[in-house]
Amino acid sequence: MKKLALPLLMAAAFAALPSHAIEPLPLETMETPHEYRVEVLQVTDIEPYQEAYNGFLETLKEQGIAAGKNLKVNRVKVDFDIERGGFWNRLGALMKVRQEAVRMAATKPDLVLTIGTPATKYARGILEDAKVPVVFTAVAHPQDAGCISLVDGGPGVTGSTLYTSMQDSLKMVQRIFPNTSRIGMIHTDDENGVANVAAAADSAKPLGMAITAKQVAKTESIIPSVKALREGGNAVDMFAVPLDTYYGLHRYEAAIDLGEYGKENKVPVVTLAMVRVPGAALYVGAEFGKVGALAGQQAAKILKFHTKPDVLPILRQERPTILLDPERLAALDVKLPPAVLEAKTSTRNGFWQLSWEQLTQ
C-alpha cells in the first residue's frame, strides 16, 4: 500500500493545481525560428534598382523579417554591358539569367525577387516549373515581363510595377507648362525607353500636344540630337526624359548636357521617371523605393502566410510623385500659375513636392 500512496498523492497534488499551471508550452517557444531564404536576381547594377531593393528589405523588416534575424538573402547581379548593347551581349546576359534561374530552382528558396524587366521575363518560366514563388519590382510595363495584364502576374508570379498613366503625367506637365505644344524625347533601344516614348506619343494627341522622338546609340552624345530637335518649323519647346538607362551612363553625362542646353536656351526639361536627371525642372512618376516597398508587402504575405502569388494582384503607386526644382525654373524664367504654387506641400532635398489632388481639382 505504501508503494501506491506516493503516486496517488502526486496525482492529487496536480489535480489541485489551477488549470493554467499545467498548460503545455506554446509551440513557438519549442520550435527553432524559421530562417527565410530569399534569392534576388537582376540584370545590371544601377542606382534605381538599389532604391527598389532597399524599399523591399525595409518593408520585410517592418513585417518582422530581417537579415541577421530570420532572413538570409543571396543577391545576384548579372553583368550587362549597357553601352555596347547589341544582340550577342544581350544573348549572353539572357543565358546568365537562365543559368541563375536554374540554380535557384534547384535550391528551392522560399521566394525569388526579380528586379527589372529582363530578370523577370527570362527567369519566371523556370521558377514557375519548380514551384518557387516569384515577386518582381522595378518593372515599367508588366506585360513586357510576361504578365497577363497590368494587375495579373500570371502563374506563380506577383510584384509591383513602376507603371503610371502617361496621360496623367502629361496632363501634369501641361498644367505646369501650359504653353507646351511639342515635346522632344531622345531614347535608345532600351526596352523601357522605347515603351515610354510610344506611350507618350499616344497620350499626347488627345491633349493637343505632339511628341517628336529620336533614337541614339548608348555610346553617342546627346547634343546633336538635342540641336536637331530644335531646328525647323517643328522645333520642340520642351524635352522629356523617358525611363532609359542611357541617361545614367558616364556619370549622367547625357542628362547633364541636356539640362545645360535647356538652361542656356530657355527650354524646360522634364523627366517622366523618378530617376536622377541633373537639370530637370519637373519630375513626374513612380518612385523606385516606394515600388520596391510594395513588392515587400506581397513577399511578406507569401513568406509568413504561404499565400500563393497567383492570388495577389500586381501593385503600383496609384498617383505619380510630383517634384519641382525652383532654382531651375527661375533660371528658365518660368512663372508658375497660382494654383501650382498653392499645391506645394513640402520641400524635399531642395525640390518642391506638389499635391496631385490639389493640382487635379
Rank of each mutant, 00 (worst) to 15 (best):
L258Q: 05
D244T: 09
K214A: 02
L94F: 08
I314Y: 09
D325P: 07
K96H: 10
P18Q: 12
T188Q: 01
D189L: 10
A217F: 14
T360M: 12
L8V: 15
E51G: 01
H187M: 04
K290P: 01
T321G: 09
V284C: 06
V194R: 13
H141W: 10
G350Q: 07
S203W: 08
F239A: 10
G184V: 06
T219M: 11
A210E: 15
R103A: 13
I211W: 08
I302E: 09
S221K: 11
R230E: 00
M185V: 11
V139D: 01
E231P: 01
R84F: 11
D45H: 13
I223H: 03
K205E: 15
V277G: 01
L332M: 00
Y252P: 01
G55C: 10
R75S: 06
R84K: 15
V267Q: 04
I256P: 00
L294Y: 12
M274T: 02
Q99P: 01
K263L: 10
N179L: 12
P133W: 11
Q50V: 12
Y53E: 01
P18D: 08
V112K: 00
K304H: 02
E264S: 07
H141K: 14
D237K: 03
P155D: 05
F56G: 01
T219P: 00
R348Q: 09
R316F: 14
L170C: 04
Q297Y: 08
A199G: 00
E23M: 13
T307A: 15
G259P: 01
G85C: 02
K266F: 09
L60S: 07
V132I: 11
V340N: 00
Y49F: 13
A293P: 03
V157Q: 03
